[in-house]
């Protein structure tokens, strides 16, 4: 138990003293996972809406594939992204392996199916007549889609939160494609693994506490947006 107390003390010390290395690690985590979530939101929301609102042969199979992707293991993504980005791999000329960009790519791949799957589910859950009604009131197609997205925003925000939670807490892909390079690709999760390996348990606990605080802060903001009253 002492070790947890020491860790908590250390966490507040590090935060209070604005330890530069820790702040850098925390900022990188937020940046990388935030960008990955945003990219996955753009891709997931647009493709998900398109799939949900149209009907075509093979739709069930496609939706099943997306839903399977919601549980995509980060290490599997990490492995395939590394192989693609190897110097002598197909995308080696980009020289992206062991960079923050590589982590963003991998995390986007992890989060996109989550956002997309939730989007499809949320859109299909709206009453079918809603579309007709909106169109009957004279809305353009784009206006209709926008209104539907607004109508489904509760589950959509839940999807964004799940996506962000998934990527900021994953360690497998980050360590494989990022390499845990000090001051460059070291994020909160990979730093926690390393400090545990070094026996710096207080530091590892401190990093975990910071990670939890982050998740809470981001989810608090998202929940606030989700739960707020509609502007009148």
């Amino acid at each position: 138990m002492d070790v947890i107390l020491e860790g908590l003390t250390k966490a507040f010390q590090l935060l209070a003293s604005l330890d530069r290395e820790v702040l850098g690690i925390a900022w990188l985590s937020l940046k990388v996972s935030g960008l990955a979530t945003l990219f996955s939101l753009v891709i997931g929301l647009s493709v998900g809406t398109l799939v949900a609102l149209s009907s075509f042969p093979g739709k069930k199979i496609l939706v099943s594939v997306v839903n399977t992707g919601m549980g995509l293991p980060p290490v599997v993504v990490g492995l395939f992204v590394s192989i693609m980005l190897w110097r002598n791999g197909p995308l080696g000329y980009l020289e992206l392996l062991y960079t923050p960009t590589a982590i963003i790519i991998a995390q986007t791949v992890i989060a996109t199916p989550i956002v997309m799957g939730v989007t499809i589910g949320a859109m299909q859950n709206l009453p079918a007549n809603l579309r007709l009604q909106i169109l009957a009131l004279g809305a353009t197609r784009a206006q209709m889609v926008w209104m539907l997205i607004k109508e489904a925003r509760l589950p959509l925000m839940a999807g964004v939160m799940a996506g962000f939670g998934g990527v900021i807490s994953e360690v497998g892909a980050s360590i494989m494609v990022g390499g845990n390079v000090r001051g460059y690709t070291r994020v909160l999760t990979t730093a926690t693994v390393m400090e545990t390996g070094r026996g710096n348990f207080d530091m590892a606990i401190a990093l975990s506490v910071i990670l939890l605080l982050f998740c809470f802060a981001v989810n608090y903001i998202l929940t606030y947006i989700q739960q707020r009253e509609r502007p009148r």
């Binding site: 940046k31 935030g34 960008l35 945003l38 960079t99 923050p100 960009t101 460059y184 947006i225 707020r228």
Partner: peptide
């Protein structure tokens, strides 16, 4: 909340800027 998009834009900008200095 109305200033939130501004924060998001600012975050995006600084994030992209610092990632590209990495490049």
């Amino acid at each position: 909340l109305r200033t939130l998009p501004l924060f998001v834009a600012l975050f995006l900008f600084s994030a992209v800027a610092s990632v590209s200095t990495g490049w």
